[in-house]
Amino acid sequence: MFKRIACIRIGGGSVTRDAAEETPVAIFVNGRHLTTIALSPGGFEDFVTGYLYTEEIIRSADEIESVRIEENRISVITKNIFKRVSVKKTILSGCGGAVSYIDTQKLPAIDSDLVVAVPEIEAAVAALNAPEPLDAVALVTEGRIVARAEDLDRHNALDEVIGRGLRESLDFSRTAAVGTGAVTSEMVRKCLAANIPVLASTGAPTALAVEVAEETGLCIVGAAGTPEMAVYTHPERVAGMEGRGGS
């Protein structure tokens, strides 16, 4: 996922440094171009499975007949080859197009009674160990990492672990997603689509992510694995917060 690149240091001197690889990949479904996404190399089948699922193009991995991976192209054939597909749009424009927001009425709500313990979140964050500048995302169940992915874009990494979970028939309602970087409304939407009840990350959530998560039953944990760890929404899903440090 890295390539050695020559560069010149400020102050003089030539050096080589690792640069993360990035590949524009065109996704075709049933012979029609759906989108083109920049991905880190590897994990393409898991990614496209998760991506099609969180975009609500498929409802299970069983709907995929075949996946063909070429250098810069992923071609998917679904069992219903006549189905027309498009990327789902949940971001709507307000009056005059001046305001954008997510219509939570069009999003599913979390259906799960999962409660996770603080030590489980801390252990998962410690195990991520993502090399710069990549982000990492893992799915955790009963304190175990059951799927893990790295990518330049944490949204892609989240799709990849969701895809792995689909292909392995994982019960998402019993998992927590743990990752690096900020929590965005798009990450919230993907967790809602998969019915993942807890999303914890080393970064902080955006205000919109908190708003959407609060309305739909998703628990967001920010600054995970640090003394500043905090629960932003649905604290009833996190056990063991009492007596912890931070402010």
Rank of each mutant, 00 (worst) to 15 (best):
M1V: 10
V25L: 10
Y53D: 07
P131C: 03
G97S: 01
E55Y: 06
V183T: 13
P235I: 03
A136N: 01
V15Q: 10
R237E: 07
T175S: 14
L166K: 05
A182C: 09
G96N: 15
P197I: 08
L166N: 00
I196W: 10
P133T: 04
G50F: 14
L199S: 08
M1C: 12
L92S: 12
K190R: 15
D18A: 13
A147Q: 03
F172R: 06
P24Y: 00
R154S: 15
K190A: 15
G96M: 05
S60C: 01
K106E: 06
P41L: 10
S93P: 00
G225H: 08
S247D: 14
E120L: 02
V115D: 00
E55I: 04
E120C: 06
L128Q: 01
I10F: 08
G31E: 06
T16H: 12
V76S: 02
V140S: 09
T216C: 13
D153F: 02
D111S: 06
I69P: 02
R237K: 12
A38Q: 11
V188D: 06
D103F: 13
A127Q: 01
P24R: 03
V137G: 04
G240H: 06
V116S: 01
I8H: 11
E56P: 03
N30Q: 09
I8Y: 08
V183W: 05
A20S: 09
G225I: 07
R4I: 12
R32Y: 11
V48K: 05
T202L: 15
E211S: 12
T35Y: 10
A123R: 00
L218W: 01
G43D: 00
G11R: 12
G94T: 13
L170M: 04
R68F: 13
G31M: 00
S75N: 05
V25Q: 02
M229I: 06
R32I: 05
R167W: 03
V188R: 05
K83Q: 15
A109K: 12
G203W: 13
E22A: 14
R4C: 12
P197Q: 11
